[in-house]
Design a protein around this nucleic acid. Structure first.
Lengths: 183, 183
DNA sequence: GATTGACATGTCAGCTCTTACATGTCACTC
DNA sequence: GAGTGACATGTAAGAGCTGACATGTCAATC
């Protein structure tokens, strides 16, 4: 019988609707740039995902093609139905706390490595976190995405603190694999 | 001509190899439980992903079926090749910092809501973060996954702090949509 | 007028992951 | 012996996403 009732993800749609609502009509190209610029620490999507999704959203009446300019440029605008959908998702959707993080996976597996390698791995993670934090710190905290920016800064700093503590702990270990010189 | 050189994800493989290396031979069922129990805040995978992946990994020589017990139970063990692959991934793989977080997406879109709705959304996020943090705080910090556990605790606490600050800020706003009564 | 590079839109193969469906064993209780 | 629930393993459809490929415009420089 096969009763299929997929709870489709919608996150990409919501992100696109959010950008259109917040900053007005835009082309797929613009939206891809916006993703790169402002949503990058929150959600990622390339143009290869965005263009087909806009077509589907237009078919579903959530956005409308407003005009076609030079260079085949198509401007999409959010429709009232799209705005409604966006707001009800925000208000009703219980976010899954699920995180898939390669950094955390490497952290999890650290005990498999000897001390030197573990230190090298944590140092690489630290550099990566530092770099991401620096990017966020350059952003304008008065712009639209400021709440997510604050969250990203907060998480970035706590990640960095974790890396420093972990490095200190690893370096504090005596050369022997097992710690506990006294207790 | 189509020269395909996909940088396949491998993360699921690595996670499985890591569990097998850390805790010894196990069945697919055990691994699914371990995922649920110890890796849940780092990576998620259900049995429907794990069973086929173990078969592929066996075909690639990374794991071996050790024995088949009652109830059709199959015990997998990591091979030397698997252990080697695991360690080189850990040491060589530059983790993508990419995060896809529905919580952060909701945070990003907060300015689209009126004050009351925004407060409700942040309160729901806060409850969710609190709940996840409570789960982590119950875990044994001396066990294998302790580095990732520390990272999760650190991130969880900073998320909670963000929620509290954001709530305070939202509640501090005067009823009018725009703040700035003085400057 | 030729080249270069930013602008602009798309397709497709193949991998990843989730959901639903499907099957069967074993231990224990009623 | 019938039913329940934990144990145990799978398949398949379809959504989500990445990377490679493909096409064409327009403005500025050489």
């Amino acid at each position: 019988m096969s009763i299929l009732c997929y709870a489709a993800d919608m996150s990409l749609r919501i992100a696109l609707l959010g950008l259109l609502d917040a900053t007005g009509p835009a082309s797929g190209y613009d939206l891809a740039k916006s993703f790169e610029r402002s949503l990058n620490h929150v959600w990622q999507a390339g143009h290869t995902q965005i263009y087909p999704e806009l077509v589907k959203m237009a078919a579903d009446g959530l956005v409308a093609v407003e005009s076609e300019g030079a260079r085949g440029r198509k401007i999409y605008a959010i429709t009232p139905e799209g705005a409604e959908r966006l707001r009800s998702w925000l208000i009703e959707h219980e976010p899954t706390g699920a995180i898939r993080s390669e950094v955390a996976l490497q952290a999890f597996l650290l005990p498999l490595l000897d001390k030197e390698s573990a230190i090298a791995v944590v140092e690489r993670i630290r550099a990566r976190l530092q770099q991401r934090l620096a990017v966020l710190e350059c952003k304008d905290p008065s712009k639209f995405g400021r709440y997510a920016l604050n969250l990203g800064l907060s998480q970035g700093r706590s990640g960095l603190a974790w890396a420093d503590e972990t490095l200190a702990e690893l370096r504090g270990l005596e050369p022997a694999d097992q710690p506990a010189p006294a207790t």
